[in-house]
């Protein structure tokens, strides 16, 4: 299993220099991939813009959206953004897409929430069929989501599955569903499986405050997500081992505190 790190693009107050420094230092570290989250109605940096900035200061690490909310975006522009980041980075993009969980992102974008799944499928079909739009045929696509239709969509159009976080056993269950859907759709081999988790090494309270705020829309669930924040080297090692055992191919650890020291500490733990 490979381990990547998140860019702090959805932590409020993060500015360009922090993001760019973070990317540069992560590229020099033991991380396989730099990944971003996506939120429209929240103090954050747009995921493709963040990856474009990261592309300019990195050479090695993969770049990934984990995930981007496809249906918020016009399909042609989404494809253009993805193709552009892929070109700027020298073909290092992995494009993860899902419908997202927040109604207010849709309201802010002026996009109907209803029909979001079918629209995401159209976007994926376009990306898969998109040689004329400049999409390279082997651009790696991931799809996220926990519903039956989401797994079917993943197996139909993508190369793998992007899980939305949680303890290893939750990942293992979703991984089973992803493999089951893959086989049901007649795809050869197995889907690539990506997982994610949150960490804060040292400033536990700031991390929890951010997660409670970021996930406030989930109601009581926000507390549980905050409680799952990995706040010690041991917790991270257990988590990494649990995901590896559950068959995860690439695990992204997202920061909850946008301090470069966090990155260095994580590098020590995972290297």
């Amino acid at each position: 299993m490979r381990v990547g790190i998140g860019l702090p693009n959805t932590i409020p107050g993060v500015d360009g220099p922090v993001l760019v420094d973070w990317a540069r230092r992560a590229d020099a570290g033991p991380f396989s991939t730099l990944a971003v989250l996506d939120r429209l109605a929240y103090d954050s940096i747009e995921p493709f813009a963040a990856l474009a900035a990261a592309a300019g200061v990195t050479k090695r690490a993969g770049l990934a959206t984990m995930i981007a909310i496809g249906p918020l975006r016009n399909t042609a522009l989404l494809v253009k953004q993805a193709v552009s980041v892929d070109a700027l980075s020298g073909r290092r993009l992995t494009l993860g897409l899902a419908v997202g969980a927040r109604l207010d992102d849709y309201e802010t974008a002026g996009v109907e929430h209803r029909g979001r799944g079918a629209r995401l499928s159209e976007q994926l079909a376009t990306l898969r069929d998109g040689d004329d739009l400049g999409v390279r045929p082997n651009l790696r696509l991931l799809v996220g989501g926990m519903t039956g239709p989401a797994f079917a969509r993943m197996a139909r159009y993508a190369d793998g599955y992007a899980h939305n976080g949680g303890p290893p056993r939750a990942f293992a269950r979703a991984a089973d569903s992803a493999r089951a859907a893959w086989s049901d759709l007649g795809r050869p081999g197995r889907p690539v499986l990506w997982g994610q988790g949150y960490f804060a090494l040292g400033d536990e309270e700031a991390g929890a405050t951010y997660l409670r705020d970021y996930y406030a829309f989930t109601g009581p669930f926000a507390e549980k997500i905050a409680a799952g924040n990995l706040t010690s080297a041991r917790a991270i090692r257990d988590f990494v081992r649990g995901y590896a055992e559950a068959g995860c191919d690439e695990l992204i650890l997202f920061p909850t505190v946008a301090d470069l020291e966090q990155l260095d500490r994580l590098a020590e733990v995972v290297s």
């Binding site: 499928s121 039956g148 797994f151 079917a152 969509r153 139909r156 089973d176 089951a180 859907a181």
Partner: peptide, 10 residues
């Protein structure tokens, strides 16, 4: 393709 009741449990 978008069958709402799809359920890919083991």
């Amino acid at each position: 393709p978008e069958a709402a009741q799809a359920d890919y449990r083991r």
